[in-house]
Design a protein around this nucleic acid. Sequence first.
DNA 1: AGGATCACG
DNA 2: ACGTACGTGATCCTC
Length: 843
Amino acid sequence: MNRKKTVLIDGTSMLKEAYYAVPANCVKGLRNVVARIIEEKQTDYIAAVFGGMNENGTAARDLMDNETRLKETLGSLKIPVFEKEGARSLDLICSLAKNCISDEKDVSVLTADENFLMTLSQHITAWIPGVGEEGTELIIWTEEKVKKEFGLEPEQLKDVFSLERGAGIGRKTACRLVSQYGSLQAIYGQKEELESGQIREALTEYEQQINKEAQFLCLKTDYDVHLDEVRTIAESEIAEIMDMDFEPASFPEEVVEISSEGWMGKAITELADAEAIFSGCAAGTSLGLQVAGTDKKIAALALCLSKEECWCLVAQGNLTSEYLKEKVEEVISRGANVTVLDLKSQLSFINVSDEKTVFDASLAAYLIDPLKSSYEYNDLAQDYLQLSLPSKTELLGKRTIIQALAENQNQAVTCMCSMAYVSFMCGSILKEGLKTAEMERLFYEIEMPLVYSLFTMEETGIRVERDRLKEYGDRLKIRIKETEQKIYEQTGETFNINSPKQLGEILFEKMKLPGGKKTKTGYSTAADVLEKLAPDYPVIEQILDYRQLTKLNSTYADGLAAYIGSDERIHGTFNQTITATGRISSTEPNLQNIPIRMELGREIRKVFVPQEGCVFVDADYSQIELRVLAHMSGDERLIGAYQQAEDIHAITASEVFHVPLTEVTSLQRRNAKAVNFGIVYGISSFGLSEGLSITRKEATEYIEKYFETYPGVKLFLDKLVADAKETGYAVSMFGRRRPVPELKSSNFMQRSFGERVAMNSPIQGTAADIMKIAMIRVDRALKKQGLQSKIVLQVHDELLIETRLEELNQVKKLLVEEMKSAASLAVPLEVDANVGESWFDAK
DNA sequence: AGGATCACG
DNA sequence: ACGTACGTGATCCTC
């Protein structure tokens, strides 16, 4: 018997699903799916049904717009659309399907509503988006597949869903119960015989809600709807329709796959529901957590308790943010095994009493591979779960979670649950990864504790005198105008001095200055080129002045002013998962590149001041990287040099050039200093010759002499490269790894770069490790000794503390001691400390 | 979006 | 022969 095929599209659920995955492309995506079904002649009849869209807020309006457009599109594909006032699409489709079957047709329902699974029969199948072999695809559900996956008849799923949604019972448990007892009614009939007390309680407590869910799942199949129209449409017409464009241009164009995972979770807004969820978070249970909010107030909190159980608790009504804070802190202190992503960003919402119970998955992923550009949930899902999830931007556009939450719960809920889910799923994988890579101590003893130190530092911020910064900027602006005029006079042209293109043309073509091209785009006008090229032209000096002035003005004067908060302080961000070597980085604003080398720029540091009753204590390591090199290489002569020495560059010069220390010339010292730098950067004669403006031959000679003097260094560096070539990564003293894929490159330049990286990373990385240890210890000592002083900045080898006047001596001593003793090396770790009324004075 | 430039370690 | 010193971030300009 050859039955005709019918496809019924659940427009409402499919649109909603697509909309929350890709708001911009939802209609287009669905159109493509439908067009494919028609083109591939997978059906004889097709119809769409709408009804029962229950959304709130802006999403409702947005969805209505999209629904209208989708209906238009379906109309142009000559697909009949069924709709009835007050009717749910679920009921309409079931009614239609019933009539189709009695007309001897087979029905496939294209839907994102898994409730349809309970209606499957010999003649009804469902196509539901889900994860298949090749990522997200339409999964064909048949009666047999339901029996296989759930171990139940389709109609029994109604009871499973009711238990799940009404009582928050996990899917597996619910299936087991229904399978064991046959039906919901039977379960209640023998409730007292149930072994699990937890389930007994849930059944009692949530009886009403379970009944409500069951009621919701009762289908109405007697709507008077019939499918008698035969769909006919020419292929040329389809092509035309496919070309139609109705997307707003402002949204990203990427097509994101539709997904309907069991873990996607639901928004919880009732206190009783939240209670039940928290009661499931006993000591020792593993869970994924994600907190979001503003101004220290929790707005939402996602919890993942198993791989199919995710909840997003939204602060609302009785379910207050205070309650959520209290409960989640209780869960953590009770000793639950909590995994989060980017812990530092969540510490303003919760107090973590026991620093050992929270595991930061992003941070672990960073240690395992520090070369990645980000460690968000979708990155981790891809790398560790082989799962493609829509990114935060794809879900929310430019909105933050909080904004999206206010406008529309579901997108934000999906995002929150994704984070909790990925945390939950990646936790054990990453812990195993850390163990395999021998980075457990680095992680648990350095990186995790540092999260709290960095959080405190960010929260503290640094005071900046707004008025004084403004005055500084005004002075710069006057000088900029003057300099600008002089340059216009001397070049005889009014142009944009900031444009390297215009500047290059005027200098090298119009004024015919000596020199030529250097970059891909044209003439190089970089400072070192200009200095070398034309010391005789006064205009060059003006241009360099102009550059300096505008840099200071835009980046520092105006730039910093934009970040001063109402507390007169700048709270920058210190990133722990950015650099390849283990250093931290600073953004919004970058507080690690405030000028110091030039006099005029250095002035800016005068506006960084401590609050009343405080002074700054600044301490920095003296040549920490070279000392690390001395220690790690074990070169006796270099170690000896450091044990006796104050001026290491002079001593290096004395030993390399075989002259008494007192007779070292300033040129020799300068050369030795450059070689020392070169060694740390991963020496090459080319690089050194550039840095010293000497020939390559001379540079090679310097390096050879250096290695003759310190043979242990040569052996050490060679071994670093050899080891990295063998293992694929460079390693610091504390086990921090940096992969060096460039070492395998067939390209000479790439490979040479890899070799320099293999030499530099362990040195820079170890110095970074030591500074991190020092920060943690200084921070802990301040807290332990009950001091109010706070670390306000870290600049790689420098710490700045805002110190209460009465604590000054104690803090200064503690700071220096903790920094010096952060690591025990074969050479002493020297620390220079200064006190001042501003950062300028303390340096 | 990517390059050039320049601020820091 | 190739042609760069290592690690960052912000701003401006050009495409």
